[in-house]
């Protein structure tokens, strides 16, 4: 009866070989609301990074930490609001709750990662969910990015309170968002797919005074 969880949990790759057309959660927004090109006067640039692999890890910090170190090569952020990136800055793991972490990896890597984590965790008490279809990642970059966020989120985003390597779940306008700061100039918003259009239009409107541009 060893490895009970590994034997009983059914997993499958959500990315198929079939040539199915895919659209980012913002595809509709680009068509309906347009996407102003970034210009010389743009003080903030919006960029969507769709189709990333999003995994939620739940379980005890010590158990997960061992597996994450082994598989991803980075340690689990044990402190609240922690965000850790790998050496290339492509893969990240973020503290969401005392027993929950969000892992974001380049699209296509998530199923292999999930399998390796399941193998490394074995019989431990844990859960891994692939939530890539449910949310998308929007990047804000530029000198006015934090001013734009000050108008949008209830959380204090002043650099003294929100250093690089911090991430929180908070309110953005009328929706919830995972807000994080992987580097000095870049902010990331992880929004629900169903609220992506709302967030996008809010950002275009709030960013108008900074001549917000959208990179596609």
């Amino acid at each position: 009866m060893s490895n009970l969880a590994v034997e009983t949990v059914r997993t499958f790759d959500t990315r198929t070989e079939a040539n199915t057309p895919v659209e980012s959660p913002l595809a509709y927004s680009y068509r309906r609301s347009g996407a102003p090109a970034p210009g010389a006067d743009s003080r903030v640039v919006l960029r969507e990074r769709p189709f990333m692999g999003h995994l939620v890890l739940r379980g005890g910090a010590i158990v997960l930490d061992d597996a994450v170190r082994e598989v991803l090569g980075v340690s689990l952020p044990g402190e609240p609001q922690g965000l850790t990136l790998d050496a290339e800055g492509q893969r990240s793991i973020q503290w969401i709750s005392p027993d929950e972490w969000l892992v974001i990896v380049p699209g296509g890597e998530e199923f292999e990662l999930e399998k390796r984590l399941r193998a490394a965790l074995g019989d431990a008490h844990f859960a891994i969910s692939n939530i890539g279809g449910g949310q998308t990642l929007i990047e804000l970059e530029g000198e006015a990015a934090h001013e734009l966020l000050m108008k949008s989120v209830v959380y204090d985003v002043h650099p003294s309170h929100f250093p690089v390597g911090k991430g929180v779940t908070t309110l953005f306008a009328k929706t919830s968002v995972v807000l994080r700061r992987p580097s000095e100039s870049r902010w990331e918003l992880i929004v629900r797919r169903s609220f992506a259009d709302y967030t996008y239009r809010w950002l275009l409107d709030a960013g108008e005074e900074y001549a917000i541009g959208v990179e596609r």
Partner: peptide, 12 residues
């Protein structure tokens, strides 16, 4: 007490 910091009342 779990996040270890003060947060806006709207979040609760």
């Amino acid at each position: 007490p779990y996040c270890g910091e003060h947060r806006e009342e709207e979040e609760f």
